[in-house]
């Protein structure tokens, strides 16, 4: 069970990079690639470990091929970029160079879905879960706080397969302690017997807020954070959610192929027929942008909308 605290963390990408920096200082085999994308924490990495940092330029196809080549040469490789560019722009390189040869390269995608809210559809990674989980051998991590983001560094250093780690921008309350054991892949953050709310990434915080709100209506909600979207420990997850009266998934991702799809597939494959609602970005919203909260309201994944949906569903 996670620790509940209101303490605020640092930015997830800074937490990840700081942890990796500490490891890379001791392990010269770690190589960090960027496509002209920076961060204050990365400035320190670049300054102190210049031989382990490569700015490969705005060339995402080559970025991934070079990363794969470095891994073939025995390097422990990290590739860092905006989520939309590191997934879509080089998708075939991910499939062929990384996944088909199963090379342990870790992709750090910053800003899933509407994190770059006002920057428009080019910067919205609205389908990263769907496309990345379709790649054989690829693991997917989607942490909800900076402690977990830092803990993923350890997971990635041990990994023998490629990993895609999506890190949100901004600071979120800490839900996890440092060096959290991530082997389970999901956490029940709150128990409740009336409805199970499943979320990932920054939407986990939204789920907690929703559960607190539902409490006012005497609805006891269970909150589950699925921080590893692939592979999922299906048996254990099922044992946790199968007693729920109903399940709702909330995600900042297209309705096609994201968390809602994952849960739906798991239930179907196990012949568990529970009422399930999937709240996500509808198919037609490609050109929607603005302040993140506004987009969430439009999509219906802000706290008020989700609570309203659940109350109507309860009746």
């Amino acid at each position: 069970m996670a620790v509940e605290t209101k303490a605020y963390s640092i930015d997830m990408r800074d937490a990840f990079i700081k942890e990796l920096y500490a490891r890379a200082k001791a392990e010269p085999n770690i190589v960090f690639l960027s496509n002209e994308y920076g961060a204050p924490s990365l400035d320190i990495f670049r300054r102190d470990l210049p031989k382990q940092f490569i700015n490969a330029g705005i060339s995402e196809q080559n970025l991934i091929s070079v990363a794969a080549g470095l891994a073939l040469g025995g390097k422990k490789v990290y590739v860092y970029s905006i989520a939309s560019f590191i997934t879509l722009r080089c998708y075939e390189q991910l499939k062929i160079d990384l996944c088909s040869m199963n090379l342990p390269v870790t992709l750090i995608g910053v800003g899933p879905c509407y994190a770059y809210s006002v920057d428009g559809p080019t910067h919205h990674a609205t389908e990263d879960i769907a496309i990345m989980r379709a790649l054989a051998n690829m693991q997917l991590y989607s942490p909800a706080d900076s402690n977990m983001a830092a803990a993923i560094v350890d997971v990635s250093l041990q990994s023998t397969t490629p990993i895609y780690c999506r890190l949100d921008k901004g600071k979120y309350p800490l839900l996890y302690k440092q060096n959290e054991d991530l082997s389970a892949g999901f956490t029940v953050l709150k128990e409740g017997e009336d409805i199970c709310i499943i979320a990932t990434g920054m939407m986990v915080h939204r789920a907690i807020e929703i559960a607190e709100e539902l409490n006012k209506y005497s609805i006891k909600a269970q909150v589950v954070d699925v921080y590893r979207l692939k592979p999922i420990d299906t048996r254990n997850l099922l044992s946790v959610v199968r007693n729920a009266k109903k399940i709702i998934t909330i995600e900042e991702h297209t309705i096609h192929g994201g968390l809602g799809s994952i849960i739906s597939e798991i239930l179907t494959d196990a012949n568990v027929f529970l009422p399930l609602k999937r709240l996500a970005v509808p198919d037609e919203l490609l050109y929607t942008y603005g302040m993140r909260e506004n987009i969430h309201r439009e999509v219906g994944i802000d706290t008020d909308s989700v609570v309203k949906t659940i109350l109507e569903w309860e009746q």
Partner: peptide
């Protein structure tokens, strides 16, 4: 070429 560049750099 990109793969070979990566291994050449390693």
């Amino acid at each position: 070429l990109g793969l070979a560049a990566g291994i050449s750099l390693a």
